[in-house]
């Protein structure tokens, strides 16, 4: 079996053409998802049942169903509903890009809020008590003690989620978007050369993963400079 290197060299630039869309999907969903996650987190730990219960249900649904199904519901399913077609959001929801962003955001928001919650729960009780003993109000304790430490604790898991999010952007190709995956699939459909195309694409994704990991590793290192490193 020969590798058609000419094909590879020809296709890589074409696929990289889609990297812009991949990045848009990634950064936009990550940013919006993070905002959503923080809102969900605050609702979840608010102690008020009418805030935390719906949040728990939301997280449960979005973590318990495949993201592909979520994408299909939003892109193919919502147009079935009249009130969606009539709503002010219709221009966004009609487009595959808007639907993809919405699906990815809702999905990552659920996961990240749980990750943040894990960070918050991981803050040593003694530190919060020390804050209380000094007379710091609950709000002050949360902002100045819990939050900085929780962020550091949540960082590894969060970096994993960002990588997952990047991999999920490839699913946008199933609703006609021409990100890298979408372009790759069209090339393969024309050339019947899955190995060359898909393996090259795999390498591109691996490079992206590596870059994300390096970035987070750097951030983690900076944040952990005060933590016991040796001994």
């Amino acid at each position: 079996m020969i590798f058609d290197t000419a094909l590879i060299l020809d296709s890589i630039p074409k696929m990289l053409f889609g990297i812009g869309l991949t990045f848009q999907l990634l950064f936009l969903s990550a940013a919006l998802g993070l905002v959503l996650a923080i809102i969900l987190l605050l609702m979840r730990i608010s102690g008020r049942w009418y805030l935390s219960a719906p949040t728990m249900v939301y997280i449960y649904i979005f973590r318990g169903t495949p993201i592909l199904v979520q994408i299909f519901i939003i892109y193919y399913g919502l147009p079935q509903l009249e009130f969606v077609r009539d709503s002010v959001f219709w221009p966004i929801l009609r487009e595959p890009f808007g639907c993809a962003i919405l699906a990815l955001t809702l999905n990552t928001g659920a996961y990240v809020s749980e990750i943040l919650r894990g960070g918050v729960l991981g803050v040593d009780r003694g530190l919060k008590e020390a804050g209380a003993a000094l007379g710091l109000s609950a709000r002050h304790r949360f902002i100045y003690i819990t939050t900085p430490i929780a962020i550091r604790l949540a960082l590894p898991a969060y970096s994993n989620d960002v990588i997952s999010l990047m991999k999920s952007t490839a699913l946008a190709s199933t609703i006609t978007l021409l990100d890298m995956m979408g372009i790759a699939r069209t090339i393969v459909a024309e050339t019947y050369a899955p190995y060359e195309i898909f393996i090259s694409l795999m390498i591109i994704y691996l490079a992206l993963t590596w870059m994300i990991q390096r970035s987070f590793g750097w951030i983690e290192k900076r944040m952990s400079r005060y933590v016991r490193s040796e001994a």
């Binding site: 003694g126 530190l127 020390a130 804050g131 003993a133 000094l134 007379g135 430490i149 005060y226």
Partner: peptide
């Protein structure tokens, strides 16, 4: 409670210094 706590100092067995 907050008023009381600011007038009462506490030292813990596990120090509980803010690591960050």
């Amino acid at each position: 409670i907050d008023a009381v706590r600011s007038e009462v100092g506490m030292v813990f067995q596990s120090f509980n210094l803010f690591p960050h």
